[in-house]
């Protein structure tokens, strides 16, 4: 075997291995990433009826609104620590927008989660009161969601 031939073979072999490693690290779903995306979907699902009432697209119903707000509050209290293992940030993976800053500033991240719990608690009260109260509670709730996204989610 000539030197150049073995060089070509060696290089293509290395490329294959690198390609496979790359594919494995990117294509394989990470359960933690999937779990936190699911948590976001559950929140969006429960925001939907509250938002529709705030936009006057759906008649106000205290029970429906309270149930949804209660679910949001429960979801805001889920311990998300295990959903954010090392290496599951947006610089390490293609399928997440979770910025590495989360891991650099866990205290700040937790503070945002506490803000969300407080806003969800206020929504539980407001949802059971009346439509005006519900509308008023949308802004702080959206502010809590957006505040964390602003600091810790990679813009699209």
């Amino acid at each position: 075997m000539s030197f150049s031939r073995s060089l070509v073979l060696g290089l293509s072999g290395a490329a294959l291995v690198a390609g496979a490693l790359f594919a494995a690290s990117h294509a394989e779903k990470n359960p933690a990433v999937e779990a936190r995306k699911s948590l976001m979907q559950l929140m969006a699902f429960n925001l939907a009826p509250i938002g529709a009432m705030a936009k006057d697209e759906m008649p106000y119903d205290a029970e429906t609104a309270s149930t949804a707000a209660g679910n949001l509050l429960t979801l805001s209290r889920v311990s998300v620590g295990p959903m954010f293992p090392e290496g599951s940030d947006s610089f390490s993976r293609d399928d997440t927008r979770a910025l590495p800053e989360i891991w650099d500033d866990m205290a700040g991240f937790s503070a945002h989660l506490s803000d969300l719990t407080a806003a969800a608690e206020a929504m539980v009260t407001a949802a059971g009161t009346d439509l005006d109260a519900l509308k008023q509670a949308m802004q702080p709730l959206g502010g809590a969601c957006g505040g964390c996204h602003k600091d810790f989610r990679q813009p699209e």
Binding site: L47, G51, A54, K55, Q139, L141, G142, K150, R153
Partner: peptide, 22 residues
């Protein structure tokens, strides 16, 4: 819709209940 836009400008929620970014 117009009410989707007003909600977005108020709370930041999109019609899918994602939030305004960037």
């Amino acid at each position: 819709s117009e009410s989707d836009l007003v909600e977005y400008f108020t709370s930041g929620f999109t019609p899918d209940f994602d939030t305004a970014g960037g």
